[in-house]
């Protein structure tokens, strides 16, 4: 079937002449320049003490981090603190998504459940999760439970909203496909609702994840004896800038890695999703 094969499109790369300007305008070259400048600026500001003694130089931060790997800080090594924060996020995140995602789906599928849950949800939604920190300390003390609670509060909202909207924005004719082929309501939900709302649910999980990092840090800054938030607040209390900046670097790396993980998971679960160029 030739005509069919002809319908497949191919993209051809254009070749441009190679000049000095092409190097200067090359994306990767510019990235490299920018990175070098970033670290130079950081080192310069740290060395000249432009911001007082509060900014540690890059190599000081590296030494500090290397030191923390071997010498425990407040009873835990660097990896211990990373795990403390990650563990809180995982527990809170799992509890919130296990409850919120099905609830969102149910709300979208059943107008009566929606009528009961939505008003209360809308009432609680505008309160930033961080505003719950104080009350969660009053309720659960300063232990693990209060931190997990904050993460649950923070991640619940995007998980629920996205699964709710994911179902509501499904093209109604997709249900007609299943109905025409003799499917019943249950089959419509299994074959259309669930897979069609997957990308939206994953987007919700991505948002939740970044909120979860904010929440866990806020909770650890207020009261904790372990975790990355604790590391930077300890650095502040001991006036050790290398500890603060080191903590921030580690947070950035770990948060970035968890985002990558969820993206990879999404590609695995939703291979059909087209990629959009950009960030």
């Amino acid at each position: 079937m030739e005509a069919v094969a002809n319908e497949v499109q191919k993209t051809v790369r254009e070749k441009r002449p190679f000049t000095l300007l092409t190097i200067l305008k090359n994306r990767w070259f510019l990235y490299a320049v920018s990175m070098v400048f970033f670290f130079w600026l950081w080192d310069f500001v740290g060395e000249r003490r432009i911001l007082g003694s509060s900014l540690a130089r890059p190599h000081e931060v590296l030494i500090q981090l290397a030191d923390m790997v071997t010498n425990p800080l407040a009873g835990k090594s660097l990896f211990g603190h990373i795990w403390a924060s990650t563990q809180r996020i995982l527990i809170g995140f799992v509890i919130a998504s296990v409850v919120a995602v099905p609830l969102g789906l149910l709300m979208a599928l059943n107008p009566y459940i929606n009528a009961v849950v939505k008003p209360v949800f809308d009432l609680l939604k505008p309160m930033p999760p961080i505003a719950w920190i104080s009350i969660s300390i009053l309720w659960f003390g300063i232990g693990e439970a209060s931190k997990v609670f904050i993460i649950i509060i923070g991640t619940f909202v995007p998980c629920l909203l996205n699964s709710y909207n994911g179902v509501r924005l499904i093209e109604p004719e997709l249900y007609d496909v299943v109905r025409m082929l003799g499917g019943n309501r249950r089959q419509e939900i299994i074959n259309v609702c669930f897979p069609a709302s997957f990308p939206a649910i994953f987007a919700g999980l991505q948002i939740s994840l970044s909120i979860a990092w904010t929440c866990v840090l806020a909770a650890e800054l207020v009261s904790a004896r372990s975790g990355l938030g604790f590391v930077i607040i300890l650095g502040m209390n001991l006036a050790r800038p290398a500890l603060i900046v080191g903590g921030m670097v580690v947070i950035a790396v770990v948060a970035w890695l968890t985002t990558l993980l969820v993206t990879a998971l999404e590609k695995l679960v939703c291979p059909w999703k087209r990629e959009i160029e950009g960030m």
Partner: peptide
Amino acid sequence: MIRPIPPIAWIPLTIFW
């Protein structure tokens, strides 16, 4: 490089600054 750092994490530095 700045993006993955939750804004909250800047608090100790900003208190110094």
